[in-house]
Amino acid sequence: MIQYLSIALMLVGIYGLLSQRNMIKLIVSLNIFEIGLNIFIVSIGFVKDGLAPILTSNHNSSALLYVDPLPQAMVLTAIVIGVGITALALALARKLYKTHGTYELDEMEGE
């Protein structure tokens, strides 16, 4: 069920990217899209009644049923790349604010 809802969350992010004209709102929409995508990628590795993919002294054999570790590893790196993208986008937005004095894309005047 969370898989359908994560696709809906991605669609909310796309809607924000299409309809907003404020730079901060655009970056927030990009982040919402990214969170939805991360939940979707983790959900395609979920196994019903599976264990978390860590061997401990309680669940000590690899013959038990674990969830898929590969999508989780991909998402772990994707989250860290996401903070890099957000920081770069916000630095660009701040630079544009300094020259134009506004975050609204419609109110900026071209040279």
């Binding site: 989250i79 996401g82 957000t86 916000l90």
Partner: peptide, 29 residues
């Protein structure tokens, strides 16, 4: 929802980065 999908590593990372540092960067901007 990451915890419900048995992904503790991803949940820790998202808690520190997603709701801590990203929010801080936005607020500073």
């Amino acid at each position: 929802s990451f915890m419900l999908m048995r992904a503790p590593d991803v949940a820790i990372t998202e808690a520190v980065i997603g709701s801590g540092l990203v929010t801080a960067i936005f607020v500073f901007t």
